[in-house]
C-alpha cells in the first residue's frame, strides 16, 4: 500500500476543484483534509470555491420560475403534441391512402418521373453516335457510297443487279407486248441494297411522264432484284433502262404462276 505523504500547496490547489465537485478519490480527500487543517492559504481558496457555488445557487434562487407560466407548460406541450401529425411510417402511409388527392399527386409525380426518365433514356440513346437515328448515324448513312440514299453508278467493279427468279414473271409485265409506237422511252430508278426499285421515273422524249411513271411504279413495286454488289457487299445503284416500243399493261394481267386452263 502506498504510504500517505503530505502533498504540497501546488498539488492541493489542483485537487480543490475536484474535491469541490465531488470528483476526488477518498485517498486524496484524506490527504487534502490533512493539508487544509494546517494551511490557511489553501483553505482560503477552498472557501472561495464554496462561496462562489453558494452565491451561484443564491442567484439562481432569486430568479425563480414564474409559477403561473410554469403551470401552463405541461398542458401546452401536450396540446402542441396533439396537433402534431403522427410521424410514424405506418400512419404516414395510412394518411396517404386516406387522402386520395395526395395519392393522385403521388401517382402523377411517379408517372411524370417515369416519362421523364424514358425521354431522357431515349435522348441519350439517340444521341449516341453509334445509333443509326443519331445525327452522326444519319450523316454516316447518307454519305456512305452505295447506301440507298447515295447509290452508286454502274462502274467497273460493281456487278449488275438481276431480277430475282421468283419475280421474273412480274418483271416481264414491263415489256413490249403490244407496240404502241412510243419511241424514246427511258426508265430511271434505283435498285436498293434490299433489291427493290425506288425513285422510278419514266422519261418520254426527254420529259418525265407522270402517268407512265405511276403505272410503271405500280408494277415495279412487285419486282425483286438481286442487288448489285461491290466487293461482295450489296450496294444501291442507279439504273437506266431504255424501253423503246414498250407497252405498259394498264389492266390486270392473269397470274402467270397459275395460268388459267393449265394442267
Amino acid at each position: 500500500m502506498t504510504p500517505l505523504t503530505s502533498p504540497g500547496c501546488r498539488t492541493v490547489r489542483t485537487w480543490l476543484t475536484a474535491a469541490h465537485d465531488d470528483e476526488l478519490s477518498v485517498r486524496r480527500h484524506v490527504l487534502l483534509d490533512v493539508h487544509l487543517a494546517s494551511c490557511a492559504s489553501c483553505r482560503g481558496v477552498r472557501d472561495d470555491l464554496t462561496s462562489l457555488g453558494t452565491a451561484l445557487r443564491q442567484g439562481a434562487a432569486q430568479h425563480r420560475p414564474d409559477d403561473v407560466a410554469f403551470a401552463r407548460l405541461a398542458p401546452e406541450v401536450m396540446a402542441r403534441k396533439a396537433m402534431e401529425p403522427d410521424t410514424r411510417w405506418r400512419h404516414r402511409v395510412q394518411d396517404v391512402i386516406d387522402d386520395r388527392q395526395r395519392l393522385w399527386m403521388i401517382g402523377g409525380t411517379l408517372a411524370a418521373t417515369l416519362a421523364g426518365a424514358l425521354v431522357w433514356a431515349a435522348f441519350v440513346g439517340l444521341a449516341a453516335p453509334t445509333h443509326p437515328g443519331s445525327l452522326a448515324g444519319l450523316l454516316r448513312t447518307s454519305t456512305a457510297l452505295g447506301s440507298n440514299a447515295n447509290p452508286l453508278w454502274l462502274v467497273a467493279g460493281v456487278t449488275l443487279p438481276r431480277v430475282a427468279a421468283d419475280t421474273r414473271a412480274k418483271a416481264m409485265l414491263i415489256q413490249p407486248l403490244r407496240p404502241l409506237g412510243i419511241p424514246n422511252l427511258a426508265l430511271t430508278a434505283v435498285v436498293t441494297r434490299e433489291g427493290q426499285l425506288a425513285s422510278v421515273h419514266v422519261i418520254h422524249d426527254g420529259v418525265p411522264d407522270a402517268a407512265l411513271t405511276r403505272a410503271v411504279s405500280r408494277l415495279a413495286s412487285d419486282v425483286r432484284f438481286e442487288p448489285a454488289r461491290a466487293r461482295g457487299a450489296p450496294v444501291a445503284v442507279n439504273v437506266v433502262w431504255l424501253l423503246e416500243r414498250t407497252t405498259v399493261a394498264a389492266t390486270p394481267i392473269p397470274d402467270l404462276a397459275h395460268p388459267v386452263g393449265g394442267d
Binding site: S51, L52, A55, L56, R57, Q58, G59, A60, Q62, H63
Partner: peptide, 9 residues
Amino acid sequence: QKQLGERVW
C-alpha cells in the same frame, strides 16, 4: 448574500 448572488448571476 442576496447582492452577491445577483452579481454572480
